[in-house]
Design a binder for these strands. Structure first.
Lengths: 145, 145
DNA sequence: TTGAATGCAAACGATTTGCAAACAC
DNA sequence: GTGTTTGCAAATCGTTTGCATTCAA
C-alpha cells in the first residue's frame, strides 16, 4: 500500500500540504532541512506553512517514511526512507546522500560491545560522512564548482 | 601533557570556570547537558555563567577533550573523551555511558560501503543505545527505581 | 457534518553574540 | 600592562503550542 492509502486506513487525511512535502522529498537528492522543504514547497503551494512542514515531518517519521539525519552544517535534514532499516552516508561537498543497509554488518560489532560492556543494545545511530564519486573526480581533475 | 599545560602552550588561559567545567565532567558517569554542567558547576563556583559553559565546551571539543553525543531526551550531552577514537553507548534507563573502541570493527563495513556506493568515507558517527547491566538486573528482579 | 489538519502568532528552549568589566599571564 | 576570558542582557535559531479557521472524508 502506498503512503496515501496507509494514511487513510489509519483515519488520517491525505491533504495538499502533505502531498507537497512528500513530493519535495521525493525530488531531493540530499537531506533537506525543514525550512528548505518549506521554501521549495511554497513554490507549488503558496500558503504552505513552516509549522505544517514540521508537523508533516514528524508524522512521516512516525511511520518511518522519512529518516532524520545530522548534517555537516549542524541542521537536521530529512530523507525519504527506502525499504528496510538502512543508514545514510552524506557527501561533505555536495550534500548528496546515499543509503546502505547496515544491520547485518553491525551484528558482530554489537555482539562484541554487548559482551565487553555488559549493555544490551537495542538501537543504534550510524551515519557516515565522506565524499561522493563525482566530487572526488571533480577534485582530482581540479575542476571548479 | 595535561589539558592545563596544553592550554597554556597554546597561549590560552587556565581559568577557574574552565577548571570547574572539567571537574564536573570528570565526575560525571553520564553525558551532561550544558545546563546540567552549569547547575553542578555553580555549586562550587557561584558566579559561573551558562554562556561560559557553552564557550568552554566548544573549546574542549576543539581539542577533542570532550565528545558531544545525542541523548535519548533530544538534548546534547557532553562526555570526557578517553584516549583514542571511541564510540559511546548510552543506557536508556539511567543515562550511564560507556565507551568502546570502534574504528577497527568498522573497517570492514566502511570498505563495503565505499565499494557499493562509490563514496570515500572520512568520518563516522556511531552511537548505540540500550540498557546497562544494572538496569537490566533491576528490571528482571522487578525492583522499583 | 465532523473531526482532522492548517496557518498564524506567540511561546519556547537551546545556543550565540555584543560589550564592558575582570582576570591570567 | 595587555590581551584573553568572563558574565550579563539581548539577539538568534530551530522547533513547538494555542487557537480559530479550513478542509477531507
Amino acid at each position: 500500500m502506498d503512503w496515501e492509502g496507509r494514511l487513510s486506513s489509519e483515519g488520517l487525511r491525505v491533504t495538499a500540504p502533505r502531498r507537497v512535502v512528500m513530493d519535495v522529498l521525493s525530488g531531493a537528492r540530499e537531506p533537506l532541512a525543514p525550512h528548505e522543504i518549506w521554501e521549495q514547497g511554497r513554490r507549488v503551494h503558496r500558503t504552505l506553512g513552516l509549522v505544517t512542514v514540521y508537523r508533516t515531518l514528524s508524522l512521516l517519521e512516525r511511520f518511518s517514511w522519512v529518516r532524520r539525519v545530522h548534517r555537516a552544517d549542524g541542521c537536521h535534514g530529512y530523507l525519504l526512507c527506502s525499504a528496510g532499516h538502512a543508514h545514510a552516508i552524506i557527501c561533505r561537498d555536495c550534500g548528496q546522500a546515499a543509503e546502505f543497509p547496515g544491520t547485518d554488518d553491525l551484528g558482530g560489532l554489537i555482539a562484541d560491545v554487548e559482551a565487553s560492556t555488559g549493555y544490551r543494545v537495542d538501537s543504534h545511530l550510524l551515519q557516515l560522512s565522506g565524499q561522493c564519486a563525482q566530487c572526488r573526480a571533480r577534485r582530482v581533475a581540479g575542476e571548479p564548482e
